[in-house]
Amino acid sequence: MRPTDGGGAGPRAANGRHESDEERADRKWGELIQEVRVAQTGVQILFGFLLTVAFTPAYEGLARTDKTIYVVTVLFGAAATGALIGPVSFHRMVVGRHIKPQAVRSASRLTFVGLLLLLATMTSALLLILRVATHDPYAPWIVAAVVAWYTYCWFVLPLWARHRHTTARRGSAP
């Protein structure tokens, strides 16, 4: 029997949960897969639409620069799709090998890379669309503003919250 702090099934971790390392890995794996499902769906839909562009009559009329942006966008989309599907394959290849904590860490890193590639895909897709649809010389600035917004929502705000609440918790510990 494992020692507890009096109320749970397992030892109490620093995060206040009563869970073993395996239980924590199972929980983190479940959370990661839920997160990946959201990003994966978005990138797959975007990637699917991107793949169809080259087969439309309008593609031939694109300027060389726009075709280059398109190819780069498709490559980013392919890489993002691979990275965001990777955790599922990773899990399938290592299931039953008793390395779930390590698998969760690796899959988490792969997911983070996938999010960065998704950001690159969306950035270049938005640039291409705004260049072709508006011919506006301010398109790159509009794209930069949207990228700043994505960066704030996806990275800055979560990192700020992590820092703020981790620091506050450490400061209030006995």
Rank of each mutant, 00 (worst) to 15 (best):
M1D: 07
R2W: 02
G6R: 03
G7S: 12
G7A: 12
G8A: 06
G8H: 01
G10T: 04
A14D: 11
A14V: 05
N15P: 07
N15I: 01
G16W: 00
G16Q: 05
H18Y: 08
S20G: 10
D21V: 14
E23Q: 14
R24H: 11
R27D: 13
K28C: 12
K28W: 10
W29Q: 13
G30C: 02
E31Q: 14
L32G: 09
L32C: 05
L32D: 08
I33M: 14
Q34W: 03
E35H: 07
V36K: 02
V38A: 08
A39Y: 02
T41W: 01
Q44S: 13
Q44I: 08
I45V: 14
L46Q: 03
F47Q: 06
F47P: 00
G48C: 05
L50I: 04
L51V: 04
T52D: 09
A54N: 09
P57F: 08
A58E: 14
Y59I: 13
G61C: 07
L62M: 14
I69S: 06
I69W: 05
Y70F: 13
V71D: 06
T73N: 04
A78C: 08
T81S: 13
L84N: 00
L84I: 00
I85Q: 10
V88L: 12
V88T: 11
S89V: 15
S89C: 09
H91P: 04
R92H: 08
R92E: 08
R92S: 13
V94C: 05
V94F: 13
V94G: 03
V95N: 11
V95E: 15
V95Q: 15
G96Y: 03
R97D: 11
H98L: 09
I99Q: 12
K100R: 15
K100T: 05
K100E: 07
P101Q: 07
V104N: 02
V104L: 05
V104A: 05
R105M: 06
S108G: 15
R109V: 01
V113M: 09
V113N: 02
G114M: 01
G114P: 00
L115M: 10
L119D: 07
A120I: 02
A120W: 01
T123R: 05
T123P: 02
A125T: 01
L126Y: 01
L126F: 01
L127S: 07
L128K: 05
I129E: 06
V132R: 13
V132T: 15
A133I: 01
A144M: 07
A144Y: 00
A145E: 05
V147S: 07
A148D: 04
W149G: 14
Y150I: 13
T151K: 10
T151W: 06
T151R: 07
C153I: 12
P158C: 03
P158L: 00
L159V: 08
L159M: 11
W160K: 11
A161S: 11
R162S: 08
R162Q: 11
R162P: 00
H165Q: 09
